[in-house]
Amino acid sequence: MTVRSAFEEATDAYRLPRLVRLGPNLYGAAFTLMKMVPARHIIRKALADGQIGPDTVIIETTSGTFGLALAMQAVHIGRRLVLVSDPVIDERLYRRLTALGAVVDRVPAEAGLVPGGFQRARLDRLDELRGEHESTFCPEQYTNPENPRSYASVAELMVEALGQVDCVIGPVGSGGSMSGTTRYLRSVTPECRAVGVDTQHSILFGHPDGKRELRGLGMSLMPANLDHTTFDDVHWVSAAAAYQSTRALYAQHALFMGPTSGASFRVADWYARTNPDQLTVVMLPDEGYRYTDTVYNDEWLAAQGHLTPSLPPEPDVVTDPTVPADGGWQTYHWGRREHPDVIALAVP
């Protein structure tokens, strides 16, 4: 009754994931660029609401894929975009951003030495920039409620294609994708479980802040868009475990994805096997191209020591979420509680 039609513009084409079967009860939601979901939605809404005028400069702090998605959408609407980033932004990403016409404003390297690190310095620089321009719009992916809300479109697709989803598993950064997708899935299936994937020394689910190798998930500051009451379980996955399972996802399923996808696949593959009666969907947020010299390079993996120890078959169950393990893979039953409620129990 409906005919297939062409996409309106590139960001529309990139917006929704492809749902791919990975096991008897496991499906992957494979995104080209998951951050396109909030970026496109937030910019279009701001344009429609008049928050973005003809001369408005869009400003955001990001070193990651959200910036790339914004840069693409900025091209469609012909607005200037300034991205405040870490001093060490991935060179390839930098070139892709500037080729789209975005301005990348890097904070100085010394900023990493003070508490809050680069994340704090980037927010301060953002405030400065806002003062310098007449009209600015800041998408604010960490606090803007339109970030989680934009994932209603992803939930729509899952519900239409798969019906009742029993469990959704995915990486947590701003929290927008997991909080939003789960919230909208639960409008049809309130019992739908949510499993968040984080990495050791990220503060999101209780660890003290520390040096992290795995990028794209985990945070040093708590984002308002992370609704802790979403999550039934939390997992912490090390860089080595994430990289190895990124390769396993490629080798076993021919899905060429990034390391946050690998970390989530690790958890989801185990979860779906141990819960064969639950239809499980795993979020796979970006593709592997940015990681060809690293995660997809055996010499690099060996030199960095990421091939040992080999992939653990199951997570260690921890009882205290505030104490990070030294690498590996751990899980904690979060029980849809608020962050302070969990931490109050853990800290005597």
């Binding site: 209603a152 479109s153 939930a155 729509e156 697709l157 519900v159 239409e160 909208y184 409008s187 049809v188």
Partner: peptide
Amino acid sequence: VFGVLRAA
């Protein structure tokens, strides 16, 4: 939410 219910 209504968009999701419509899809369902």
